[in-house]
């Protein structure tokens, strides 16, 4: 099975506090630590496990710039066989549809049975996977938390719905799935693994290579555009307890008792 996983490099929310910059028009980007979008890492692990089970190859792809190469190498160190960096100035300012248009052009040059994305990017909209599927006319399932390959033509997937319930679906291949966190336990990647893939050449096709009409992507084609970042006015604020931990602990006990929480 040929599996493609779409990955994105994002500011790592577990390593950074995301704050407004001093100009108030963007997030503070100095000293940001980046990593692969958490959902995408689960997607790569899932692809590797499927390839282990039924045979096949895993390719990772990102649309971005030079800086984004590091996440491709990381995912190669995990076991992805090929990596592709799709890059062109014309892509800047693309909205979700722009990104899906770019990925579609790339996918049509290949021969993938299964395409995985993350459910959403930390700085995204939970949209690229569903858009991509619709453009390709492939079936789509979002929020996938289990995959079973039935045969070369169909797979069975579970979607995470309300209350921790699972919706079981049968999906024809080729298809696009957006992967939910927790579907597996992504393997650890050490520095050594990353060094081993450091010199592998990563192809970087541009718009012309993929036959993409620049008018269909980038800022000019985008119907949806982020104007700014801001911190909303605080409408409600908790009563902040001050003092030593002991004093605070006493207060917490008092409040919890008053609420009938315990005796």
């Amino acid at each position: 099975m040929e599996i493609l996983v779409c990955v994105k490099r994002v500011p790592d929310t577990s390593e950074n506090e995301i704050v407004l910059n001093s100009a108030g028009n963007d997030i503070e980007r100095d000293d940001l630590v980046f990593s692969v979008n958490e959902w995408d890492n689960y997607a790569v692990e899932e692809a590797l496990q499927i390839a282990d089970r039924v045979g096949g190859n895993v390719t990772v792809v990102t649309v971005g710039g030079e800086d984004d190469e590091e996440v491709l190498r990381r995912e190669m160190a995990m076991g992805a066989k090929h990596a592709v960096l799709i890059s062109d100035e014309a892509f800047e300012g693309s909205d979700g549809k722009g990104l899906a248009t770019i990925l579609k052009a790339f996918i049509e040059k290949g021969n993938y049975d299964l395409i995985l994305t993350g459910v959403q990017a930390d700085d995204g909209c939970a949209q690229v996977g569903g858009m991509l599927a619709a453009m390709l006319d492939y079936p789509f399932a979002s929020l996938v938390n289990a995959i079973e390959v039935l045969d070369g033509k169909r797979i069975k997937v579970c979607r995470e719905i309300e209350g921790g319930n699972k919706e079981v679906n049968e999906v024809d291949l080729p298809c696009v799935l957006s992967i939910q966190t927790g579907i597996n336990e992504p393997r650890y990647v050490g520095m050594r693994g990353i060094r081993q893939v450091a010199s592998i050449e990563i192809p970087t096709p541009c718009a012309a290579d993929l036959g993409i009409d620049p008018a269909t992507v980038g800022a000019a084609a985008a119907k949806v555009r982020r104007v700014d970042y801001f911190v909303p006015a605080v409408t409600k604020q908790a009563e902040m307890l001050q003092g030593s931990n002991e004093e605070i602990a006493d207060k917490v006990i008092e409040l919890a008792k008053a609420k009938g929480g315990f005796r």
Partner: peptide, 23 residues
Amino acid sequence: HEHFGIDLSPGLSVKLNSAFVSD
């Protein structure tokens, strides 16, 4: 914007050739 909306809307906006804004 819950599990069904996440499933439906991005693809629907492609088929309708309209814009999509999420969440």
